[in-house]
Every structure is written in C-alpha cells, then in structure tokens.
Amino acid sequence: MEAFTTHTGRAVPLRRSNVDTDQIIPAHWLKKVTRDGFEDGLFEAWRKDPEFVLNRPEREGASVLVAGPDFGTGSSREHAVWALQNYGFRVVISSRFADIFRGNSLKNGLLTVILPQETVERLWELTEADPAAEVTVDLVAREVRAEGITAGFDLDDNARWRLLEGLDDIGLTLRHEADIAAYEAVRPAFKPSTAVV
C-alpha cells in the first residue's frame, strides 16, 4: 500500500448525499477478476449524463472527491474503493461515511476525511467557482487546506499510523511473523491438513 502523508490536488464537488456502493460501482462489474480497470464503472449510471460533474473537462485529473453525507452505504463490495482509486482519487471528503466503506478504504489506502457539513459546503463553493483551486489534505497535521479554508479532522492514531507508514494490514501482521511461527509450532497435531490423503 502506498504511504499517505500529504496530498494536493484539484477537487470534484459531488453534491449528492447517500451515494451507495451500487451507484459507485454497479453489480455487473463484480465478475471481473482484477482490482484494476474499474474506472469506467465508477458512477456508471450517472456518467451517461454529459453534464455530470465528473464528465466536465475542467475536472479531468482531479484527485479529491468532496461528497455529501452518508457516502458509501449499501453493499460491502470492496470494488467501490477500487473503482475510486482506479479513477485517480486519493481522498474522499464527506461529513459522514458508511462503516464498511470506510474500513475497506483504509485497507486500500484511500483516505476518507470527515469534515463538518458546513466545511464541505465551503469546499463545494470554492471548487465550483474555481475548478483549478487546489485542496491539500495533510495527514501529518490532520488538516485540510484550500484558499481561505483551514480545517482540522480526526482520524484514530492506529489508522493514521498505518496510512502514514503505507502499511497495509498484511504488512502490519507480518511484523508479528515470530509470533505466528511460535503459534504454529504448538498447534495440536490432530488439526487437519488439506494435503491430499
């Protein structure tokens, strides 16, 4: 997992609440066998509308999604996180996220930042007025900065540390290699093996 310290990029203001994971990536994409290539499925239904904010040429290359409350509700599909990342998003800002989506994001290094709805509104106004406006998300200082806006955000120490170090859960667990080996050494002999008998 790529470490996340600070990121500066242009933003996409997504003025919608309750964006569920079915909207983020529709079910028919789940037969795919990779974590890549979901970018075209991202918000697939909405993107059929040329006026949808993501389709606007001035939003090309933006990497911060600023969404309404209750982002990522519904099905637990991890594909929703992959789709956002494949498209190029590093950060999603919202006043409230669904639990499972947030957990899946953390496992994949997509930063979810919770800001008060009024700050979200100010970010919407700023980035709608000036699509070139840059937003900085600083995980070290736990702060979001943009022209005229400085807002702190919370993230628990354990999660922040994992993101700063770029540690996926696997990397973290492998630090306990000796403990795992010690556990394996004393597992009872009667436990089954899948080796063909």
Binding site: L172, T173, L174, H176, I180
Partner: peptide, 9 residues
Amino acid sequence: HVLATQTLP
C-alpha cells in the same frame, strides 16, 4: 490477508 499470513486481525 489469510493467504499471506494465515491470520486475521
């Protein structure tokens, strides 16, 4: 995670 470590947090 389980494939790589045979464990889960």
